[in-house]
C-alpha cells in the first residue's frame, strides 16, 4: 500500500475556466455580473426593469440559466436585448464551462454589461465561479428575514444584496432591518438595495450603482 499526496482544489478545473472567461471579459471591457437567488425571487423581473432603465445608455447582453425552459431568455429578447439561454437539464447551478460555451453566442465587443442569471438555488451556485466581477444575491420579502443565516455561503460570496418585492411588506411579517442585519453579520461589505419591480422603487439606485461600476 502506498500514499500519494495530492492537495488539489476539487473545483480547480471550474476555477481555471472561470479565469479564462474573466480574461476575455477584461479584454473586451465587459462588466459581468452573476445574479443568484431562490426560484421566483425576481431575478428576471429585476433584469427587465434594469434593461428598461439602462437601454440606450449601456449595451447589455444576457446569459440565462434555467433547469428546463427558455422562458426567461424570451422575456429578455422581447425587450430587444440579446439573450442566450443555457438549459442545464436538471443541473442545479451554472458552471464556468457552460458559460464559456454560451459566450460563443455573445457579442462581447458590443457588450458593456453581461448579466448572467443563474439557476434558482441559493446553495450550489455559491461554489462555482463563472468569471463574474460580482455575485448579486436577490432575496424577496416573502422569503422571510433569515435567508442569510440559512445560506451563509451565498451571502459571504456575494458583493451585492437586492431585497426585492418590498411593495409586499405591508402584507408580510418580514423585518427588513433584521434581514439586513443578518446579511451584514455574514458579510459586512455587502452593498444593499431594496427594490420593487411592481412600483419601480429602488431600481434607480441599483441602476446608478451598476452604471458607476461599468464606467469605472
Amino acid at each position: 500500500m502506498s500514499v500519494i499526496t495530492i492537495e488539489r482544489k476539487v473545483l480547480e478545473k471550474n476555477d481555471q475556466i472561470a479565469q479564462k472567461n474573466r480574461d476575455d471579459f477584461t479584454a473586451n471591457k465587459v462588466f459581468p455580473i452573476n445574479i443568484v437567488s431562490s426560484p421566483g425571487s425576481g431575478k428576471t423581473s429585476i433584469l427587465e426593469k434594469t434593461i428598461e432603465h439602462l437601454k440606450g445608455k449601456l449595451k447589455i447582453s444576457v446569459i440565462e440559466g434555467d433547469v428546463q425552459t427558455d422562458n426567461d431568455a424570451r422575456r429578455i429578447s422581447a425587450l430587444g436585448v440579446p439573450a442566450v439561454q443555457i438549459v442545464t437539464h436538471g443541473g442545479c447551478h451554472l458552471e464556468a464551462r457552460l458559460v464559456r460555451d454560451a459566450m460563443d453566442n455573445v457579442d462581447l465587443h458590443n457588450t458593456q454589461i453581461l448579466v448572467i442569471e443563474n439557476v434558482g438555488n441559493l446553495v450550489c451556485p455559491a461554489n462555482y465561479d463563472l468569471g463574474e466581477a460580482h455575485k448579486v444575491v436577490v432575496v424577496s420579502t416573502t422569503e422571510g428575514d433569515d435567508k442569510p443565516v440559512k445560506y451563509p455561503n451565498m451571502f459571504r460570496n456575494s458583493s451585492v444584496l437586492i431585497i426585492n418585492k418590498i411593495d409586499l411588506l405591508p402584507y408580510l411579517n418580514c423585518n427588513v432591518e433584521q434581514l439586513e442585519k443578518n446579511a451584514l453579520q455574514i458579510n459586512p461589505s455587502l452593498k444593499i438595495f431594496r427594490t420593487s419591480c411592481t412600483t419601480g422603487e429602488g431600481i434607480d439606485q441599483w441602476c446608478s450603482w451598476l452604471e458607476l461600476q461599468v464606467l469605472k
Partner: peptide
C-alpha cells in the same frame, strides 16, 4: 474543498 491524499 480539497483532495489531500489517496491510498493505493
Amino acid at each position: 474543498l480539497q483532495v489531500s491524499e489517496i491510498e493505493i
